[in-house]
């Protein structure tokens, strides 16, 4: 189902992931999170931006385990655990955060 962001239409696949990663803009995450009744904080944006950087560099979305480890290294050991990440993204950091970031569903994420 396409989503509307600031008057623009963004195509998504049947699971709600953006069809064109390059079309993404921050407003996409805002609209998607509103639909989930989630308010995005700086902590959420840290993860979303990290995912976009990771995709830019490696051309894949990281698996949860990889993301967890990387977050611990980058943002502090206290944040490098799934409890922290699920606290931010209750539907799962890979699924929900990747979707907000405009990335495809992570490889190996079923």
């Amino acid at each position: 189902m396409p989503i509307e962001v600031n008057g623009k239409t963004f195509e998504t696949d049947e699971e709600g992931y953006l069809s064109d990663i390059n079309a993404w803009e921050p407003g996409v995450a805002e609209v998607m999170s509103k639909e989930d009744d989630l308010e995005l904080t700086d902590e959420h944006w840290d993860i979303i931006n990290y995912l976009r950087d990771y995709y830019e560099e490696y051309q894949i979305a990281p698996a949860v385990r990889v993301l967890t480890k990387a977050v611990g290294k980058k943002f502090g050991k206290d944040k490098g655990n799934s409890k922290y990440l699920y606290g931010l993204f209750p539907y799962g950091p890979a699924k929900q955060a990747c979707r907000y970031a405009g990335l495809p569903k992570p490889t190996g994420c079923v």
Partner: peptide, 14 residues
């Protein structure tokens, strides 16, 4: 085709 060679550099993370 998509150049997927940058993905090999992610193997260490995995």
């Amino acid at each position: 085709m998509k150049n997927f060679s940058p993905t090999y550099a992610a193997l260490g993370d995995y």
